[in-house]
Protein backbone atom coordinates (compact mmCIF):
# COMPACT_ATOMS: atom_id res chain seq x y z
CA UNK A 1 0.00 0.00 0.00
CA UNK A 2 1.46 3.32 -1.03
CA UNK A 3 0.91 6.27 1.26
CA UNK A 4 -1.75 8.73 0.08
CA UNK A 5 -0.57 11.75 -1.85
CA UNK A 6 0.11 14.80 0.39
CA UNK A 7 -2.37 16.78 -1.72
CA UNK A 8 -5.08 14.20 -0.94
CA UNK A 9 -4.44 14.73 2.76
CA UNK A 10 -4.58 18.50 2.30
CA UNK A 11 -7.86 18.08 0.34
CA UNK A 12 -9.50 16.07 3.11
CA UNK A 13 -8.26 18.60 5.67
CA UNK A 14 -9.74 21.38 3.52
CA UNK A 15 -13.13 19.63 3.48
CA UNK A 16 -12.98 19.56 7.28
CA UNK A 17 -11.96 23.24 7.27
CA UNK A 18 -8.61 22.40 8.88
CA UNK A 19 -5.24 23.87 7.96
CA UNK A 20 -1.99 22.01 8.62
CA UNK A 21 1.69 22.84 8.32
CA UNK A 22 3.76 20.77 5.87
CA UNK A 23 5.19 18.86 8.82
CA UNK A 24 1.72 18.01 10.11
CA UNK A 25 0.63 16.99 6.62
CA UNK A 26 3.54 14.50 6.48
CA UNK A 27 2.52 13.13 9.88
CA UNK A 28 -1.10 12.67 8.83
CA UNK A 29 0.02 11.14 5.55
CA UNK A 30 1.71 8.40 7.56
CA UNK A 31 -1.31 7.97 9.84
CA UNK A 32 -3.64 7.75 6.81
CA UNK A 33 -1.39 5.07 5.36
CA UNK A 34 -1.49 3.11 8.63
CA UNK A 35 -5.31 3.28 8.76
CA UNK A 36 -5.62 2.14 5.14
CA UNK A 37 -3.25 -0.73 5.78
CA UNK A 38 -5.33 -1.82 8.74
CA UNK A 39 -8.46 -1.84 6.56
CA UNK A 40 -6.62 -3.85 3.93
CA UNK A 41 -6.11 -6.61 6.46
CA UNK A 42 -9.87 -6.97 6.69
CA UNK A 43 -10.06 -7.49 2.94
CA UNK A 44 -7.93 -10.60 3.30
CA UNK A 45 -10.71 -12.27 5.27
CA UNK A 46 -12.85 -14.65 3.19
CA UNK A 47 -16.21 -13.10 2.32
CA UNK A 48 -19.22 -15.09 3.53
CA UNK A 49 -22.47 -14.72 1.63
CA UNK A 50 -25.53 -13.47 3.47
CA UNK A 51 -23.98 -12.27 6.70
CA UNK A 52 -23.72 -8.57 5.78
CA UNK A 53 -27.37 -7.71 6.39
CA UNK A 54 -30.39 -9.78 7.23
CA UNK A 55 -32.40 -9.00 4.12
CA UNK A 56 -35.47 -10.81 5.45
CA UNK A 57 -35.97 -8.28 8.22
CA UNK A 58 -38.34 -5.46 7.33
CA UNK A 59 -37.04 -1.90 7.66
CA UNK A 60 -37.78 -0.86 11.21
CA UNK A 61 -40.00 2.20 11.26
CA UNK A 62 -41.45 4.14 14.17
CA UNK A 63 -44.89 5.74 14.45
CA UNK A 64 -45.09 9.50 13.94
CA UNK A 65 -45.36 10.44 17.59
CA UNK A 66 -43.65 13.13 19.63
CA UNK A 67 -42.27 11.47 22.72
CA UNK A 68 -39.17 13.55 23.39
CA UNK A 69 -39.26 16.02 26.24
CA UNK A 70 -37.69 19.44 25.80
CA UNK A 71 -34.28 19.28 27.38
CA UNK A 72 -32.56 22.41 26.15
CA UNK A 73 -30.19 22.63 29.09
CA UNK A 74 -29.12 19.01 28.70
CA UNK A 75 -28.59 19.57 24.97
CA UNK A 76 -26.42 22.60 25.69
CA UNK A 77 -24.59 21.06 28.64
CA UNK A 78 -21.47 20.25 26.61
CA UNK A 79 -21.58 23.34 24.42
CA UNK A 80 -18.18 25.06 24.35
CA UNK A 81 -20.05 28.37 24.54
CA UNK A 82 -23.67 29.48 24.52
CA UNK A 83 -25.75 32.63 24.20
CA UNK A 84 -29.19 32.22 25.68
CA UNK A 85 -30.31 28.86 24.32
CA UNK A 86 -28.10 29.11 21.21
CA UNK A 87 -24.83 27.29 20.66
CA UNK A 88 -22.22 30.01 20.14
CA UNK A 89 -19.48 29.11 17.67
CA UNK A 90 -16.81 30.94 15.67
CA UNK A 91 -18.46 32.70 12.71
CA UNK A 92 -18.70 30.78 9.49
CA UNK A 93 -20.02 32.83 6.62
CA UNK A 94 -21.48 31.53 3.38
CA UNK A 95 -24.36 29.10 3.42
CA UNK A 96 -24.46 25.40 2.85
CA UNK A 97 -27.01 23.01 1.47
Amino acid sequence: MTAPDPSAVAHVAGLARLKFSDEELRLFQQEFAAILEMVEVLEELPAVEGVDTDSSAPTPMRPDAVTNANLPDAMLANAPDREGYHFRVPAVLGGED
Partner: peptide
Amino acid sequence: DGHSLVDL
Protein backbone atom coordinates in the same frame (compact mmCIF):
# COMPACT_ATOMS: atom_id res chain seq x y z
CA ASP B 1 -19.35 39.98 16.96
CA GLY B 2 -17.45 37.35 15.01
CA HIS B 3 -19.62 34.48 16.18
CA SER B 4 -22.42 32.37 14.81
CA LEU B 5 -25.42 31.23 16.84
CA VAL B 6 -26.71 27.75 16.14
CA ASP B 7 -30.28 26.56 16.68
CA LEU B 8 -30.85 22.86 16.02
